[in-house]
Computed example of a mutant assay.
Amino acid sequence: MKSVIVTGPDTVEWVETDTPTVGPRDVLLKVKACGICGSDAMYTHVGGIPPRQGATPLGHEPAAEVVQLGPDAVGVELGDHVVIDTMAFTDGFLGSGGAQGALSEYVLVIDNEPGRQLRVVPKDIPWEVAALNEPMAVAHHAVNRSGASEGDRAVVFGAGPVGLGAAISLKSKGVAHVVVVDIQPTRLEVALAVGADAVINSAEEDVIARLIELHGEAADGIGHRGRAGSDVYIDAAGAPVVVQTILAAAKHRAVLTIPAVHKRPVEVDFGAILATEIDIRTSMGYPTEIFEVTDAIIANADKYARIISHRFPFDQTLDALELARTPGAADKVVVVFD
């Protein structure tokens, strides 16, 4: 079968590999769609992920069809459409340093455990939408980490896939008002389409002044005014200026959750924020959320489909990877197999 593999720094190639052999409790999947993640560009640039440096199969955002079952495999049936917990494979994280990647024709679930690695989805969900399950779980975990709840006012910085997913998740939790901040008008249009209550173009507007208009004015813990009334902030952008803006805006005991990957250190004046008693939380992966978000995708497939900006056929995967790694060229790229 054909697989896309990192073979060295900044080098990704098609490689012919053996189609997996199915064991007694194994499930063979034919990959039908796989999203491209920003981390794929990082893995490529550094030449893989230890311990598989130099030979790393890519692809960790798949949707697939069950095409073969071992004689003792249970929990799924032939022909089922499934989404996948790529962190639950016994041979390492799928597409993130493990032995397999989902930018391949087939993936083998070794010793499948019902409800652990796979979740069946309705067959009318488009493959490319089902393939959003993994990044949307990342977004949903960030929202869970934030503690956002009914009636809160929230702000999401970054209208990429995780930011948009966070906006949808926040609204699903009954958050009263969600603002999305970005510098690209087209992204902000999508944010409104998926349910954001308001958007701010930070290249053209004073973000803090606009948040005070939308969420009211508040104070820090000792009464200093000029703070926004927002309860929850999510940094899905990963730019130092975002953190600095949030810290300047945050009211007493606001929560900042950071799922974004920051590529360089961020300078923070802790003296200036001491009186805010802000709660800063990081968020990584999806400890419990991988299949929690699936129901939302099933119920709102059309809304989630708006997140996808580009679709490529499998034989153009290398082009898809190149587009996805080009800053500002694409938002969410998904490879769709025949």
Rank of each mutant, 00 (worst) to 15 (best):
G95S: 11
G195N: 07
T90E: 15
F337Q: 00
F270G: 12
M87L: 12
G163M: 02
D26Y: 05
V266W: 03
S172N: 11
V31A: 02
T17H: 15
K251P: 07
F270H: 15
T326Y: 06
A102S: 14
T245C: 07
T90G: 12
V83W: 00
S39T: 13
K251L: 09
V120P: 06
D124V: 09
V162D: 01
Q53I: 12
E205N: 08
F89E: 00
A198P: 01
T86N: 07
A209H: 13
C37S: 09
N300Y: 06
E277R: 15
A198I: 02
L69S: 04
K123V: 13
E217V: 05
P114H: 11
Y286W: 11
G79N: 08
H262M: 07
G226C: 10
R25G: 11
I168E: 01
D269L: 13
G158C: 01
G79A: 07
E105M: 05
A198M: 04
Q244G: 09
R153E: 12
A305H: 06
L28V: 01
E61V: 09
M1D: 12
P9I: 15
L247H: 02
G226A: 08
A330G: 04
E128A: 13
L94I: 09
I280N: 09
G163T: 02
E213V: 02
G47C: 10
T86Y: 02
